[in-house]
Write a protein that binds this DNA or RNA. Structure first.
Lengths: 176, 176
DNA sequence: TGGATGTTCATGGGATTGCATGGGACTTAA
DNA sequence: TTAAGTCCCATGCAATCCCATGAACATCCA
């Protein structure tokens, strides 16, 4: 039961390198071990469709993409079009011996990354944000959760459970 | 499970040469190694049927085409026509010692290639575009994905049930 | 219990390699 | 001989490897 959880902020150095948070790396390595051994660890990374952020994940993400396309006939227009968006935008980023990746210019630009990047666990995948933008988004996500609670009539506070502990959780549930 | 992913733009020199992006070359070489060793590396390349671009790939692409034709009765008109359409315009381009191919005039013309060419990974094959035209294409593809995203959410599960019953969604957790 | 030791990670910088690209030389065919 | 195709080498930038540092945390032992 390996998932990407919680958030970490690391530094983007002059060469465009960032350390992948160790817990995330552990998840990635286990996926590799499970899928095809021998392949050096790397992540699949692409611009998020509707946010100034990057989506990223390991082998299991690639499997998901394959699954999407597997349903379409080999030479259909539809397949080509989806392939462009799904494979064409994806970058395969190698993880070096020190657990770092290099974020290419094009990806940095889409997310507006400069000196610090925030890794946000979303279960099967994770996202990469600028710390500031992610903070905003987190706020919005919390709002939304509150609204949803009202909708369901669940407004009563948990008596003991610490509400503060729900931080990263909120982010995850608000997505997509 | 080697796929062509992401996009790269390289220069087309005065002699009509382009470097194949190193990651793509790696995929091609692995296909060769797997199929029939000894053959020097080369790619299958042909004008895309419905776009100002070229389709290209390695051994596995050829196998796919064979597979398509195999589905049709041996001496049918349909098969003959398809064979011509699929194989007739195919060129076998050799990859030289420096990882480059020479794009013949006829292919360059179909795609309108001049000084720069963009290689677009599409999983099993890749395409070759002018950078400008591809940018347009990419925009369209993204739109389309956005439109049909909800559909994804629905298709994601039933497709291709992996042995063990877990959908692609569970791939991350598939191994405890 | 508290100080010392070790380990895991993030980070920085230098050294090295890989890769795209340009150009020259050699071969082959008209 | 010319033109086109092929091979080989030179170059510069960028990616990759390797090692050093230091902080946060865990472990051990007196």
């Amino acid at each position: 039961m390996d998932r990407f959880v919680s958030t970490f902020t690391n530094k983007l150095d002059a060469k465009g390198r960032v350390s992948i948070p160790a817990p995330f790396r552990a998840v990635l390595e286990r996926q590799i071990a499970h899928a095809s051994q021998g392949a050096s660890t790397s992540i699949y990374c692409y611009p998020a469709l509707d946010a100034p952020a990057l989506d990223a994940g390991g082998e299991s993400l690639a499997v998901t993409i394959d699954g999407l396309l597997a349903g379409l006939p080999d030479y259909s227009d539809e397949r080509d079009e989806l392939s462009v968006a799904l494979y064409g935008d994806v970058q395969l980023l190698a993880i070096d011996g020190d657990g770092r990746i290099i974020l290419p210019e094009s990806l940095r630009q889409h997310a507006g990354l400069q000196t610090h990047v925030t890794f946000v666990g979303l279960g099967q995948k994770f996202q990469i944000w600028t710390p500031e933008r992610f903070e905003e988004r987190r706020q919005r996500a919390r709002e939304k959760v509150r609204e949803t609670r009202k909708l369901f009539g669940l407004t009563q506070r948990p008596i003991n459970a610490a509400p503060g502990g729900a931080g990263p959780d909120d982010a995850a549930s608000g997505h997509e």
